[in-house]
Simulated assay, not measured.
Amino acid sequence: MRRLLVLATALTLTACGQTPAVQEAAREAVQENGQAAPAGFPVTVENCGRELTFDRPPSKVVTGYHPALETLLALGLGDRITGRTFFGESAFLPGQKEQYDKIPQISETIMLPQKEVMLSQGADFVLDNAMASFDAAGGYATVEELDAAGSPVYILGGWCSPEEVLRFTLDDTFTDLRNLGRIFGVPDRAEKLVTELQGRLADVKKRVEGRTPVKVLATDGGKGPVNAYGGAGVTNQMITMAGGVNVLAGVKADYTEVSAEEVSASQPEALLVSDYATLRGEDTPSSPAKAEEAFAIARNSPAAKDKRYLALPVAAQHPGYRNLLAVTDLARFLHPDAFAQ
């Protein structure tokens, strides 16, 4: 799945143009009908090099890959979501499965539905965290087509091009939370969540500070070449913040392939393994199987000798609320003594 999202993102760079004049026409129509804008509106935010303006909070929202839904649920906006994609890969965040079940599913995959189905949703806001679901060549509605239909698209983390994926920082998630708070008219709620999450990260930083960083190999399986995470992007950021050091930090990539020889020479002390759980197909090995593949390649490493690995839900390796939560889980794994008290 990760490979699919990355490849499709590279095909959809044209979707980062300017917001069409149709949104301005919609604003004029509201004014002509005598509808007063709610307090604090209109709101304008920037995303993917485009300015998005909202005269009122969205009320008919469609979400793409699950971290987008999780982020809105964390902001208490579940009642605004009228359509979501399928999620079946790993554990839901606490309390979110019940909300997920109540929202109509409009796609049997993690991707948004095909163009005609998507346009028929009549959404007034679309939230996703990659450009994969907006690729015309794949039969999807483009960002421009959705804009023209009155369904403006916001991409979490600014994952709008391969270059922007590499530039991602965890601070971008805080920017998204604040932007979404403004768009939905709940800025105080968003700021409260930001403060809570910043407190969690500050606690992790305090606990791991001064400790020797653990050498981590982040892998998505493979016997050679190995699907792994290099020294740019969200996974590398999480490893560093959790008190680890990415053994592939010198590879200037987010998700990429590296040789078995490079993995063997890296001598990791622990593995971080992307977990797809029930999303797995026959050609997708389980997390334990992927860990064993890496242990076999780096068989003389401390990680292999200790059989030390953490299965991380792959949803946490995409922009959204969950990647900030995952830093604590990763820190507990790397430095359990720091959390003993």
Rank of each mutant, 00 (worst) to 15 (best):
S274K: 05
G95K: 11
A253E: 10
R182T: 12
V165L: 05
T212F: 03
N323W: 09
R178E: 11
D203E: 14
R280A: 08
E144R: 15
G320P: 10
D329T: 12
E282L: 06
Y140S: 07
T235L: 08
G185C: 07
P58A: 12
A291L: 01
N227F: 02
L197V: 12
A130K: 11
D171T: 10
G243D: 08
P162R: 01
V186Q: 13
F54A: 09
R299C: 02
T175S: 07
A228W: 00
A29F: 03
H66G: 00
Q96S: 06
A130S: 15
G230Y: 08
D275M: 06
G64N: 04
C160S: 06
D220G: 08
A242G: 10
V6L: 11
A242Y: 04
I106Q: 06
A137W: 15
G138Q: 12
A36T: 09
S259Y: 12
T19S: 08
E116L: 09
F174A: 06
G250T: 13
M111T: 05
A303R: 02
R211L: 04
L279M: 13
E196G: 04
F168K: 01
N227G: 03
V30G: 04
D176W: 06
A294H: 01
A25K: 14
V247Q: 00
E191L: 03
Y321M: 06
T109D: 05
R2Y: 13
L197D: 08
L127F: 06
T235V: 11
L75G: 01
V43A: 08
A132W: 10
T212G: 01
H66I: 02
F339C: 09
G139P: 04
K205M: 03
D124C: 05
A25Q: 15
G181N: 02
L334D: 03
D171M: 02
R211N: 00
G34V: 14
K97H: 01
N300P: 02
Q35T: 11
R207G: 08
L4W: 10
P38Q: 06
R27Q: 13
K115Y: 13
S107Y: 12
S161H: 01
F86V: 15
H335A: 06
A149Y: 09
Q105I: 09
L272K: 00
K305M: 08
V251N: 02
L197E: 15
A338E: 13
V143C: 10
N236A: 02
I183R: 05
F54S: 13
G244I: 07
P20L: 10
G150R: 04
L7R: 12
M118L: 15
D329Y: 06
L193R: 01
K307H: 07
S287I: 05
N227D: 02
A326P: 03
K206Y: 07
T71H: 04
A260F: 07
Y140F: 14
S151W: 09
S161C: 00
A74W: 04
H335T: 07
E89G: 13
R3H: 05
A36M: 04
K192G: 03
A141R: 02
V186F: 07
A249W: 00
L73T: 07
N323C: 11
N33M: 10
L330W: 15
D329G: 11
V126M: 14
S161F: 02
L334Y: 07
R50E: 08
G233N: 00
K215Q: 10
P285V: 13
A190Y: 14
S301K: 05
D306P: 01
W159T: 03
D283Y: 13
G221V: 04
P285G: 11
R84Y: 14
A148T: 15
D171Q: 13
S120N: 10
F295K: 08
L180C: 05
R207T: 07
